[in-house]
Each structure stands twice: as structure tokens, then as C-alpha cells.
Amino acid sequence: MKKDFNEDDFLGKWLSGDLSNEDRKAFEESEDYVVYKDILRGVERLDKPVFDVEKGLKAQKIYNTSYKKAKTSKVFKLRTWIYSAAAVVLVLIGLRTIFFKDVTIRTKMAQTQVVTLPDHSVVTLNADSSLKYDKDSFLEHRELYLKGEAFFDVHKGSSFTVTTKNGKITVLGTTFDVYSRDRTLEVHCFEGKISVKNEINEVILTPGKGTKSNKKEELSIVEISNPKPDWLDGKSSFFEVPLERLIKELERQYNIKIRTGNIDTKRVFTGFFKHTNLKVALSTSFDPMNISYTFEGDSIIALKNK
């Protein structure tokens, strides 16, 4: 009996070797056969994440002990929890509407966001950063608070101030990038003129100049060559920074965890990685440093000296 290629189980039978010789030979000469072969070869190259059985079993034991308790007291816990949470939220909302009209924008790991402020200035927030400003008074006093990293394109007007825990940046109308994490402050000026001030001193930056300080030391001036920050183009670059800063940025851009193990995170790194492909990023970051990396699950990476 001859089977038709288009019959609804034909390929199923082909894969399990249940076709008659005659049918199989006819199919192997058809045009589509090559494509199907390619698909199967491609599927063979696909990889799946690792499931560690022994680790899972250990975690399971711990989970089981807490599971029972959670189950039995669930109703009571949920209710009190909901009531108290609702009360807290109400009070907070009330206080906020009475006293301030703060607007906060936060980005998560591996996320960037473009924000237009009430004065038409545009801010691009890098991953894991936050921006806060008062909605009511912003047009009179252009002031905002930044945690993390952001690129500012400031609309011309009265003075515009970005406060971070590591220092203050004041401008009139320009484009610049602020990086303020841990105890490091880095500001790059791309257009206009800006003033950067911390507890020790103040510097004025003109286009093509940047400033950098660690641990609230004196602000020094450095030259920068690119016309806008690399991270806006999906790339993070570093010039003579400790390795730990590179590692943290990788974690932020790819939403992963990196275990540093025995490597020295104070070593100096110069280079860049792209935000598009984790494997390539890891290889460009760690191969030159002679560090090997292995995946422990989907998003955990362990480092080791080669």
C-alpha cells in the first residue's frame, strides 16, 4: 500500500522507522526530505539546561520540612498579611499625596529605559538604576536623585542638578553620562559645560572630558574619545577598572550571578563586552585575563584561574 506524504502521520512513521521500504525511498527522493534532514540535524545541536539530581534532592529535603508548615498556617497568615499590607499601603499613599509627589523610575537587571522628564529632557537609565524627582517642583528646580548609571540629554533652561551619593552634577543644557555605584563616581561630558562637585573639590567639564573618583577622593579630569556612552549602543567598556566592576556590570546586563571563587577581583581590566550574547561577552571579558568560567545552571557562572 502506498502512503501519501501528506497523510497526517506520515512523518511520524518515517521518524520511528515504520514506513515501508517503498514509501521511504520515494520520500528520500523528494525535495522536502533535505529540509527535514536539516531540521533534525539542527535539533541534535540544541542543548538543554542542566538538572543536578543530587543537588535537587538536597534542596527538596529542605523544602519538604518547610512545606508542611506553610500549608497548615496558610489561611491565617495570608489574611493578617494582606490586612497589614493593605493598611501600610494606604497610609503610604496618603502620606505621599499629602507631602510629596515623588516620581521614581527603576530599571531591573538586564533592562534599560528611556524617560522623558517634564522639562523635555531625556534620560536613558542603564540596568539596575533608579531615578527620583519631585513632580510638582521639578519645572522650577530641575533636581533629581540618581542611583546607578544614566545618560542625560538636558533641555536648555535653568540649572539642572543630578544628585548622587558620591557627588553632585550641575548643568544648564547638555548631554552627559553619570555612573555612581558603590563608592565610584564617573561623569562624562559630551556636549555643553557641566560642573561636578563632591565633598572634596569641584571640577568643570567641557565636551570630550570626563572625571572619575573612587571612595570620595579628589575628582580628576580624564580625556574621553567616543561621542556618546558605549552602553547606549549595547556595549559596556572599561578603562583601567578593578575586575569586580566588570563582574558587577556583567551581572547587571545579563541578570546573572557570578561566583568569583579564588580569583583576585582587584586586578585591573581594560576592554569591553557586548550586551547581545552572554557567551561571547564572557569570553571577551575573561579569556584575556586567563580566567575560565563554567555555567552552574542557567544563570550562575563560576570563575576560576586557568
Partner: peptide, 8 residues
């Protein structure tokens, strides 16, 4: 068998 066929 049918699902395999359709998937392919």
C-alpha cells in the same frame, strides 16, 4: 504520530 508529523 500525528503530532510529530504536524510539528515537522
Amino acid at each position: 504520530e500525528k503530532r510529530m508529523h504536524l510539528a515537522l
